[in-house]
């Protein structure tokens, strides 16, 4: 990921900012610049609630190189209150605690850094509600 790419992604990565079509009201996350149903480019920004439930999950035992530092870790599919499903890392949860259907909320966490002196990437993960 480049620094410019990281900058472009700040809003959706940091606070789940989606876009909404002003014509059909469909909400897009990941955000889209153009609604492909209406061919409308007038989309408004909106923050998603950050609340949802866990649809399914697994534990990553063999991470790719960027995430080796935090393995093993949980990933899963989260259904947000707005009905949107996203993939995310699930954190602050014990082996006996994690289960399908459990409520989750947005957490702001480190993703990874490239090299010893590279920029550190942050973004959303999900945790049990505090």
């Amino acid at each position: 990921m480049s620094i410019a790419d990281y900058w472009r992604l700040e809003a959706p990565r940091f606070r789940l900012e989606a876009t909404k079509c002003t014509n059909c009201d469909k909400i897009y996350f990941p955000p889209k610049r153009v609604c492909p149903i209406c061919n409308n480019d007038e989309l408004i920004h909106m923050d998603l609630s950050g609340r949802g439930r866990l649809i399914t999950f697994t534990k990553v035992e063999k991470p790719a190189v960027e995430f080796e530092y935090m393995g093993p870790y949980y990933v899963g599919i989260v259904e947000l209150e707005e009905g949107i499903r996203i993939s995310a890392s699930i954190v602050d949860v014990a082996e006996e605690q994690i289960k399908e259907g459990m409520p989750l909320e947005l957490a702001f966490r480190k993703y990874y850094a490239i090299g010893d002196e590279g920029i550190v990437y942050y973004g959303y993960k999900f945790r049990p509600p505090l």
């Binding site: 990921m1 790419d5 992604l9 990941p30 990553v60 063999k62 991470p63 790719a64 190189v65 960027e66 995430f67 080796e68 935090m70 870790y73 990933v75 996203i86 993939s87 995310a88 890392s89 993703y111 973004g123 959303y124 993960k125």
Partner: peptide, 23 residues
Amino acid sequence: PEILSVVNHVNMDSRWEADIGLT
């Protein structure tokens, strides 16, 4: 793990899945 990174990024949504830790 470096091979996995390539395979994940090519075949998954690089930005919204591989880049957030899915494999």
